[in-house]
């Protein structure tokens, strides 16, 4: 009886299982005997590999989340998604211009957005997905890059979009265009790259590489962070 109270009943891919209360969906699936090879990654909510769709008891809404971050509830119905078969256009970033014509050519579907906000509701990162798509529609690459910055490319937005837009790939293009053409250049980086190439830090690296784990750890925690 004691054990029963700590268990919840969930449905995973159509089968019913009892799993420990408080488990994440990933933990619940493994508890139920699944060996996950696809749709699993860092288990820390960073990589975006474990998109999942689920529904909770007495709720008609299908929700999305990351299986490693979403805790199961009693009566939950879970469908783990191995991967999202979204279209991924191929382009050469060095041949593009950071403007609306590029968006039109590579992601014409962006212009079908009806501003339903379904993508935003689906996003486990709580990002303003619709807003970054709308920014692209206006040709505001910088805004789109900024708003899509936290995207982990889980694909849930694209799965729910009625206009069949692949938001995360479009957001990636925005960030690439921004990084390559629009971001302010940092002369410090150029300078540092030059120093690295010239071997200015080779000696220090060699020293670090030859240190014992303890010494390295001691050095790491006692390091001084210099800000210019």
């Amino acid at each position: 009886m004691t054990e029963n109270r700590m268990m919840v009943r969930v449905q995973i891919m159509g089968e019913s299982y009892e799993v420990p209360e408080g488990s994440t969906i990933i933990m619940a699936m493994e508890y139920a005997g699944y060996q996950l090879k696809r749709g699993i990654g860092c288990r820390e909510g960073f990589c975006g590999a474990c998109a999942t769709l689920y529904r909770e008891k007495n709720d008609y809404k299908i929700k999305g989340g990351l299986a490693c971050q979403t805790v199961v509830t009693d009566g939950m119905v879970i469908a783990q998604i191995p991967f999202v078969p979204a279209e991924k256009p191929v382009y050469n970033i060095t041949e593009l211009t950071p403007d609306i014509d590029t968006i039109k050519a590579i992601f014409p579907t962006v212009f079908r957005c009806v501003a339903c906000n379904t993508c935003t509701k689906a996003c486990p990162q709580d990002m303003e997905v619709m807003d970054y798509i709308q920014a692209l529609k206006r040709g505001n690459i910088e805004r789109a890059a900024d708003l899509s910055f936290d995207c982990i490319r889980c694909g849930l937005c694209a799965l729910r979009c009625p206009a069949e837009i692949v938001q995360y790939h479009a957001g990636t293009l925005a960030r690439r265009l921004y990084g390559r053409y629009l971001a302010k250049k940092s002369p410090e980086i150029e300078e540092r790259i030059k120093e690295v190439k010239e071997g200015a830090y080779d000696g220090e690296f060699e020293e670090l590489e030859s240190m014992s784990r303890e010494k390295l750890s001691e050095k790491y925690y006692s390091r001084e962070i210099k800000l210019k």
């Binding site: 957005c113 009806v114 501003a115 339903c116 906000n117 303003e128 619709m130 807003d131 709308q134 920014a135 529609k137 206006r138 805004r143 009625p162």
Partner: peptide, 22 residues
């Protein structure tokens, strides 16, 4: 701030709710 494309033309279809959202 972050306005939305208006949808360009007012939808004439009977079931035009989605087009009103933007």
């Amino acid at each position: 701030d972050d306005w939305y494309c208006c949808g360009v033309s007012f939808s004439q279809s009977a079931d035009n709710l989605m087009q009103q959202i933007a």
